[in-house]
Design a protein around this nucleic acid. Structure first.
Lengths: 128, 128
DNA sequence: TTGACATATTCCCATATCGGCATGTAATGT
DNA sequence: ACATTACATGCCGATATGGGAATATGTCAA
């Protein structure tokens, strides 16, 4: 079997850089297809196809207005992605702390060539 | 041209459900390949291939220990994903507020069949 | 050395993907 | 009715993908 279809879920849809670009461009305001084409410098059929994928997984909403179709990203559909990634936030904070503590321990044991740079070593932020 | 190679960035690597499963399983603790195979019920070559992809994009770290290799997810590499998705947090809050306000307005104008359910309508959370 | 064990790699296949080009379709203008 | 505008779709080719089976590599143990 081949890879799961790109229209199956948001994770697959978002794997495409151009689709991410479209989503970013379409956050905040409705735009007709033509503007997307102009703004991102893509071929019109290509944009239509990407919009189709995004629409199929609910990442964009569409509204007809005369002969143009106005698209807009449905930010709600990006939340699952954000939350899945957020699952690991806990761990990357741990990792940062481990690196930080190890570095501080080395300083405390007195590597002669390291002048104690103070508590918050290596510009590692506390939480973020 | 075809799809961007899966080994090119974290977005593509994470588009695979099994790879996400592996990442979740490998967060928090090192595990040898065999355990992943047993825990997730996948074929060993399949796991090895997925691990290769994940390793190539830096989503997992590897350490040799005797004849086994211990893998662990590198949570740091998931942050870009989290941050990209977080870019839209702003917008989905707006959308929620709009829906909420519209619903509350309808209630205030007194649709006869809606008994005012109180301030926080429709179980829409305030921020999260 | 020989053999068992833990992983990695290779080959093949069916399928999905994206881009480009041509064409289809629907709404508008004259 | 006809041309034009704004999109969508269909077809094609080159390539990437994931699964399965077989095989290669590397490490330890007797």
């Amino acid at each position: 079997m081949a890879r799961a279809s790109t229209t199956s879920d948001a994770f697959n849809a978002v794997a495409e850089p151009r689709r991410r670009a479209i989503l970013s461009y379409l956050a905040g305001a409705e735009r007709p297809v033509g503007e997307i084409v102009a703004a991102l410098g893509l071929e019109q059929p290509s944009v239509s196809k990407h919009l189709r994928v995004l629409h199929d997984v609910g990442l964009v909403r569409m509204r007809c207005h005369g002969r143009q179709k106005l698209y807009r990203t449905n930010a709600e559909a990006i939340r699952p992605l954000h939350e899945w990634a957020g699952t690991f936030e806990h761990y990357w904070q741990h990792q940062l702390n481990r690196v930080k503590e190890r570095a501080e321990a080395m300083v405390r044991q007195g590597s002669p060539d390291v002048k104690s740079p103070g508590p918050n070593l290596l510009n590692l932020k506390e939480k973020s």
